[in-house]
Nucleic acid binder design. Structure first.
Lengths: 146, 146
DNA sequence: TCGATTTTGCAAATTATTTGCAATATCCGC
DNA sequence: GCGGATATTGCAAATAATTTGCAAAATCGA
């Protein structure tokens, strides 16, 4: 698992991209906050740095292309972004229907069930990646509901 | 597994909603085409019926609330809609990165791996539903790529 | 440090989706 | 089947997230 801002700088340089204030700032936020953030939230976290929201979107788009960042869609209208699997452990999300809190789960049933192989054998489809989001009630909201 | 347009009519009536041309038309399309469709595609399929795109969106939103329809987000910018699990077998999607084709898979690793129970025990989070989309190359595109 | 090249900020454009409102369809009791 | 109370539609305009054009500013490599 690679990490550290320096690594990202080298990565961008190696791909012919500049290491800019905006890109560095966005990566710092994403490396710091351990949950998927909306562009708007990243922008807000960066208010002191005076980075334009467009630049945040541009940085995120670039990082997605470079597989540094992974886009998460939870049906909220806006997308969320987090560091890609290469920079964090592979994980999925538990999204609470009541309070909106997002927790990570390390358990991956796609791997556990050998689904990729099964599908390849049955249908010829070669699975390269997957998205799994789990919705329900977190412990706290379950308690409140009683 | 319930089905048939008549069932939907009764369901809407039972909930105090009218059975209208637009709603019936949208449900007919969704019952006919076996893959998740965008609002735009449903609208196009209905061009002869002269149903407004807004009405398609309104119908979809209502059906989602009534759990007749399920929204699918594949990171394409526009959402897709298909009949909900209660009206089709539970399934997931194989989305081809190359041609965009969407196939269904019946295998569900969340069930197979007993993930819901595992999570409940470990974290207290009660999983109520999940979204799993698989991306990769379909057999045809894999062949072409060689 | 300097010029070539990239990137940013800002404002305007785009795209999917939602909404206000008058006109129309549906439903229900007669 | 009819008539009116109520729900729904069409249309145009509004939103909200995201993208883009362009001139100004930052970055990079020599």
């Amino acid at each position: 698992m690679r990490h550290g801002i320096t690594h990202f700088k080298d990565l961008l340089g190696g791909e012919g991209y500049s290491w800019t204030r905006a890109r560095s700032a966005v990566l710092t936020v994403l490396s710091t906050v351990p949950r998927p953030l909306r562009a708007e939230e990243i922008h807000r976290a960066l208010r002191d740095a005076r980075i334009n929201l467009s630049s945040v979107y541009r940085a995120l788009r670039l990082f997605e292309r470079l597989k540094v960042v992974h886009r998460v869609e939870l049906g909220e209208g806006a997308a969320r972004y987090e560091l890609a699997d290469d920079y964090r452990d592979h994980h999925h999300h538990l999204v609470c229907d009541a309070c909106g809190r997002i927790e990570d789960v390390a358990a991956c049933p796609v791997e556990a069930a050998g689904l990729t192989r099964h599908i390849r054998k049955r249908t010829g489809f070669a699975v390269r990646s997957h998205v799994l989001e789990l919705f329900g009630l977190c412990r706290a909201c379950r308690r409140d509901a009683r």
